[in-house]
Amino acid sequence: MKLKEKIIELILQFFASITILTTVGIIAVLLFESITFFRSVSIIDFFTDTQWTPLYSEKHFGILALVSGTVLTSVIAISVALPIGLTIAIYLNMYASKEFKKTLKPFLEILAAVPTVVYGFFALSIVTPFLQSIYPNLETFNSLSAGIVMGIMIIPFVSSLSEDALSAVPKSLKEASFGMGATKFQTAFKVMVPAASSGITVSVILAISRAIGETMIVAIAAGQQATFTFNPTVPIQTITSYIVQVSMGDAPQGSIEYRTIFAAGLTLFVFTFILNSFSFYIKKKYQEKYE
């Protein structure tokens, strides 16, 4: 009996430790291939060159070209998702009835559940033609359309996390503000948002992290041209869509093309890791504040 219990505990412990092995595995794989990569490519070039052409005969390995594409699409996405998501959160928290909130939630959840490949299709075949009808010089593949659709995808994410943060603000604060004759708008922006600022910050950071890791929308709609540019109307390439491009081809194992995706992946992992850790840190601090 005792032995059986012990064995079960050990098995369960092993299952839990698989999550640690996953992280170790990610870091090991990325580092291992990247180290070999950096034996043939100088780290300084990697971070300073603005051209990324590993698939061409004249090879350049300037990750900035991919980073700029990633930053560009993410900035567009956040500028769509943050104002809309936050406004929805405030509206739901301060103005909407409980019933409305309840009926609306499943719709927002559906918006979050749509596979990203579908959003990619939406960006390329619906949003881009629509934008082109307004601005004809927009190219077929561009970061504007991909960024906007990515922003739409992230709205539910921002709105639900921010709404959680607003709900966590003690009711007494809201009532105190109302008691002094403030309107809902004044209460929202002078009391609620500042009080929930750390929670809202967390939601924004996580949204950024989501945006820079998003792959399919940019792979379908933003193009495959690694250019160091901040022009939203021309084709670009992000870190993620570059990895897709190489994977769709058949880069032989051990080739420099094969290794570039791990170096690019490592860059992406470091970015998201820093953002996630930062949000975790803020969350920790903010929980302490209310406890």
């Binding site: 839990a16 430790s17 999550t19 640690i20 996953t22 992280t23 595995g25 990610i26 090991a28 794989v29 990325l30 291992f32 291939e33 996580l206 992290s209 820079i212 890791g213 998003e214 792959t215 993620t240 990895i243 897709v244 994977s247 194992q253 995706i261 791990f262 992946g265 992406l268 992992f269 998201t272 890791f273 953002l275 996630n276 850790s277 949000s279 975790f280």
Partner: peptide, 28 residues
């Protein structure tokens, strides 16, 4: 605590990174 932080962090790792993990570990 480390396990918990790690799981929270894993939830935020982009899915394409899991692809690279799979490529390195399972495929190769």
């Amino acid at each position: 605590t480390l396990l918990e932080i790690n799981i929270a962090n894993l939830a935020g790792v982009p899915s394409i990174i899991y692809g690279l993990l799979g490529l390195g570990i399972f495929v190769r």
